[in-house]
Design a protein around this nucleic acid. Structure first.
Lengths: 155, 155
DNA sequence: TCTGAAAGTAATCATTT
DNA sequence: AAATGATTACTTTCAGA
């Protein structure tokens, strides 16, 4: 168990975070001008926020559609009572189209988010890659026809 | 409908993308040294990748746990046949704890991802904020006990 | 598509409040 | 603890190969 110290963030921290949550390459000096302190001060605040682990990193966001990945699906995976869950997770990690994987409450044990080229490709991933894992009983799919919201927690 | 031109990316583009997908503030010159071309050339390639929309932006990633958001849940929302879906989506956008929202195939019409402080808070969001929207019949929740995979499409 | 040079910006550090 | 100005390293743009 990790003990995460709580942190107090003021209005300046919020402005810094809001700018960088939208665009990780927002110029520091632009933020500095907006909040009225020096670039070096913004930097020190960023280091503090990173140290507190409130900022867990930064990423360039890739648009999967440009690579032909047009189908997004959620797949619930029902596991055998005797299934070795660690083994199942390890097998799921080896499927690159799986971008999220959760242990969940409810009827299925594992819930994954899958990016695929099309429905045929999705079917292949489910039938050939997921269903063949030892311990997997059956799956239930939900295809996202359109995503309306994609954001982070509000600060 | 948006027409996205397909793009050819070579090994250098892949190296650039892989570095920046892991850390959006990786120095361009560090990448330049790794791949053996100038910083200016990396820059031009980045502009090409942005223009193609393969790169759809960059973000600082906030760790919700540090802000006390320890419960992640997926909620399936069943809609009335007569529901005004645009109205429902608009109402969902006003709930800041909803970070993803999808129109989906299958029994429920809408599927959302919710970040909440704890189970009590989640219950409040479902009962007071989601169930009260006109057109919403009932909901079905799935709580993520542990997330094992969180990544982007493999390049 | 690449390079090297020039101008602007980021990151670090010693120092001050 | 949080800010600043100076210094070094990096990013960005541009003319030209």
């Amino acid at each position: 168990m990790q003990k995460n110290k709580t942190i107090t963030i003021d209005g300046i921290d919020k402005k810094i975070l809001r700018a960088l949550m939208l665009d990780a390459r927002t110029p520091i000096l632009e933020i500095a001008r907006n909040v009225g302190i020096s670039g070096a001060a913004i930097h020190q605040r960023l280091r503090k926020l990173e140290k507190s682990k409130l900022i867990s990193g930064s990423k360039f966001i890739i648009n999967p559609k440009i690579l032909g990945y047009s189908t997004l699906a959620f797949v619930g995976i029902y596991l055998d009572k005797a299934a070795n869950t660690d083994e199942v997770i390890r097998a799921l990690k080896r499927i690159p189209e799986i971008v999220e994987c959760h242990f969940t409450t409810g009827s299925f044990g594992i819930f994954v988010k899958v990016l695929s080229l099309d429905n045929t490709h999705l079917m292949h991933i489910i039938n050939k890659n997921i269903q063949t894992i030892t311990g997997v009983l059956r799956t239930e799919s939900l295809i996202s026809l359109d995503q309306q919201i994609d954001r982070q927690i509000h600060i």
